[in-house]
């Protein structure tokens, strides 16, 4: 069984190529397997977010290829890419990005509705996800009524709603206090361990780095170090 989730080969991304070129990602190779819990670290401007955007299909590399489950996403049309993201990739953003006019439940349901899931399936999965994040009592609250930590947990539930191949989290704990950050990491680690969900997060947060099983350090858009010595075994 092929456990490779992401296979990025020699990818580069250059901003402002015609004026003042900024090489955000420079000939990066990245190989991630199912069930990894990987931190992408590095100083500001090192290219963490750009790399996440590239492997998440939110941006396109200027060169190189990105295979996700053997599909080269650099070859997909914009609409194909959106559909691919919907069915394969979960996102958790630094500033939560929940839709303020929808309840926590509706924020999670929205993704499944985009996938045209049946109502019964939606209801069951939403209930299960809220149980996993420990917010069943807050399902019908709007984001403004939730704390930052609670909002980010809802964002994790939303990321998982589509049953993605992996979840990309861009500095997920940056706007959280210690307790909320620890709680979020516990949930993510539990989901990773119990459901073998692949997490890749960019972070500056030492608490996150400590919990990661693999740490990739970027400097000036290049992989400076990678602790990928440990082979991550897929869950049975």
């Amino acid at each position: 069984m092929n456990n490779t989730v992401i296979d990025a080969h020699d990818i580069s991304r250059i901003f402002n190529p015609d004026t003042i070129p900024v090489i955000a990602v420079n000939h990066v190779h990245l190989h991630l397997e199912r069930g990894e819990f990987t931190a992408l670290v590095g100083p500001s401007g090192s290219g963490k977010t750009t790399l996440l955007n590239l492997i998440g299909g939110l941006d396109r590399p200027d060169s190189g290829s990105i295979l996700i489950n053997d599909v080269d996403i650099t070859k997909l049309s914009p609409n194909q890419l959106i559909d691919f993201r919907l069915r394969n990739i979960g996102f958790v953003f630094q500033s939560f990005n929940l839709i303020p006019v929808l309840t926590a439940r509706e924020n999670v349901e929205l993704i499944m509705q985009l996938q045209h899931e049946k109502k019964e399936e939606v209801d069951n999965r939403v209930r299960m996800l809220f149980e996993q994040i420990g917010l069943t009592d807050k399902m019908n609250e709007r984001p403004s009524k939730l704390s930052g930590g609670q909002q980010q947990r809802v964002a994790v539930a939303r990321a998982l709603a589509s049953k993605p191949k992996f979840v990309l989290a861009d500095e997920p704990t940056a706007n959280l206090d210690s307790k909320s950050a620890a709680n979020l990491l516990d949930i993510m680690a539990l989901l990773n361990k119990e459901e073998n969900i692949t997490f890749i997060f960019s972070t500056h947060d030492a608490r996150v780095i400590e919990r990661a099983r693999r740490v990739i350090t970027l400097v000036d858009g290049q992989v400076h170090s990678d602790t990928a010595a440990v082979h991550v075994q897929a869950a049975p």
Binding site: G56, L58, P78, N79, I82, D83, R85, L86, R87, F91, F93, N97, I99, L110, I111, L114, Q115, R158, S162
Partner: peptide, 13 residues
Amino acid sequence: REIGMLTALGMNR
């Protein structure tokens, strides 16, 4: 930002 987020999550054009 929100529209970008919706597109990122899979809401097509």
